[in-house]
Design a binder for these strands. Structure first.
Length: 428
RNA sequence: GGUGAGAUACUCAAGUGGCCAACGAGGGCAGACUGUAAAUCUGCUGCGCAAGCUUCGAAGGUUCGAAUCCUUCUCUCACCA
């Protein structure tokens, strides 16, 4: 199956420039996607462009991942209703390094391979361009009229937009356009891909290629991921779901996918896994037979977690999920040895506690409030009256006292608020 | 620089001297139900066991009493230059 066809049946294709598909069928093509270094880790929203590059590579083309060290300094106004704060250079460098490292986990950058992926940073060619050069060589080719017509700009100039837009962000599309032109010239890169919000920026690039180099460049965008309930994809109450295991533990990462709604799961399995059409259709059919088993969610969680964090991390996430949500009891918990226990609870927030405190008996209220698990004594009491507090998976009342006999592996106490919120006390 | 409007808890937003720890909505959290879901219902959502304490942009002041009145300051927005 060819690249565009693949994206199409997976429901990822949003917009494609005429003749792009024909060109890709006839030519081994170099194409790129840009990644914004707004943080030192990518989050699951970036998985989609990564996966597109992976499909691209699988189809035999040459993918380039561009990290926006320069464009990140300018700030992309697309989809933003407000002017962004600029990152300082130090942060940006750190972010670029972090993002680079993560991309390497997904794409084959092995230079001996036939169509190895390549990683570039646009700072490398942007840093030496002077303002005069830029204004004469780039600015001259694109009219303000053209730039103003872009959605990302129009929205900010609307009467009801109160934010306005700085010259800096207005210029952004020229930066990104220039990247495309540069890659076209230097690496014969003729295709830029990205999220549908990038269409405007990408076409500025193809326009620049056409006017400045009399070349033909192509564009392709994918659908932005939405959730059926209208909330933002990749966000939880605790913030973004990151690809970095230190920011979002593999367990939480797996849980995010497991908690997808049925509706979303059907589209996610096509987008986020590389399973073939028959397999996916069979899974969907099977899921509909018994939705409560959540076959789709589990499969997505498995595939994506393995791809992102590796098999071992996935297995621990499963183990943790079974213990935390299965019918396991205090007895089961106590039967775990220290290592298994730590693997399972990797990523669960913890606090250290003196052994003597437990020996003297730790009352339930301070156990929760003084460890910063819950904010205040009042909150603990409230939670107790809601019957939502558990110690080692067993509901407790406000007169409960934690003692030595509650220790797991002679070292841990598992505190719990509600069904999903855990906290670990570690005896030192 | 000029004129006008505004700043209330996570967000929006009522309150214009005591009945205000502050209406309401959203969000969040929890309980029931369930599939670790959706929908629904219920409770909670400044600190404190409580008496009470600290909050309504900041600082002062008037008053027995201020989110509400006065003064100064800071910031935001709109229109004009």
């Amino acid at each position: 199956m060819n690249f565009v066809e693949e994206l199409r049946w997976r429901g990822m294709l949003h917009d494609i420039m005429p003749e792009t598909e024909e060109y890709l069928l006839k030519n081994k093509t170099t194409g790129y996607i840009g990644f914004d270094p707004t943080a030192d880790s990518l989050h699951i929203g970036s998985l989609v462009p990564i996966i597109i590059l992976m499909h691209f590579q699988k189809a035999g083309h040459n993918p380039i991942a561009l990290v926006g060290g320069a464009t990140g300094m300018v700030g992309d106004p697309s989809g933003k209703s407000d002017e962004r704060n600029l990152l300082d250079e130090e942060t940006l460098n750190k972010n670029v390094a972090g993002v680079k490292g993560q991309l390497a986990r997904f794409l084959d950058f092995d230079s001996t391979s036939e169509n190895a992926a390549e990683l570039v940073n646009n700072y490398d060619w942007m840093k030496d361009i002077s303002l005069i050069d830029f204004v004469r060589d780039v600015g001259k080719h694109i009219t303000v009229n053209y730039m103003m017509a872009k959605d990302s700009v129009k929205k900010r100039l609307d009467a009801d937009s109160q934010a306005g837009m700085s010259f800096t962000e207005f210029t952004y599309q020229l930066f990104q356009g220039y990247d495309f032109y540069h890659l076209f010239k230097e690496k014969n890169c003729v295709l830029q891909m990205g999220g549908s919000d990038q269409w405007g920026n990408i076409t500025t690039g193809t326009e620049l290629v056409r006017r400045k180099a009399q070349g033909k460049a192509y564009a392709l965008t994918c659908k932005l991921i939405t959730k059926a309930d209208g909330t933002k994809f990749g966000k939880t109450a605790g913030g973004n779901v990151w690809l970095d295991a230190n920011r979002t533990s593999p367990y939480k990462f797996y849980q995010y996918w497991l908690n997808s709604s049925d509706e979303d799961a059907e589209s996610y399995i096509k987008i986020f896994t590389f399973l073939d059409k028959e397999t996916i259709e069979a899974l969907i059919a099977e899921h509909k037979q018994a939705p409560h088993l959540r076959i789709l969610q589990k499969k997505i969680g498995e595939e994506v977690t393995k791809m992102t964090h590796g098999v071992e991390a996935y297995e621990n996430a499963i183990k943790a999920s079974n213990i935390l949500f299965g019918n396991s009891t205090a007895e089961d918990l106590k039967s775990l040895n220290e290592q298994t226990f730590l693997d399972v609870f990797d990523g669960v927030p913890q606090a250290d506690i003196e052994r003597s405190v437990i020996e003297n008996g730790l009352e339930i209220v301070p156990a929760f409030s003084e460890t910063s698990f819950l904010k205040s004594n009042g909150e603990v009491r409230r939670a107790l009256s809601e019957n939502s507090i558990s110690v080692n998976k067993e509901k407790v009342k406000d007169d409960f006292v934690i003692t030595i006999s509650d220790l797991i592996a002679d070292k841990f106490v598992l505190l719990q608020r509600g069904k999903k919120s855990y906290f670990l006390l570690k005896v030192i």
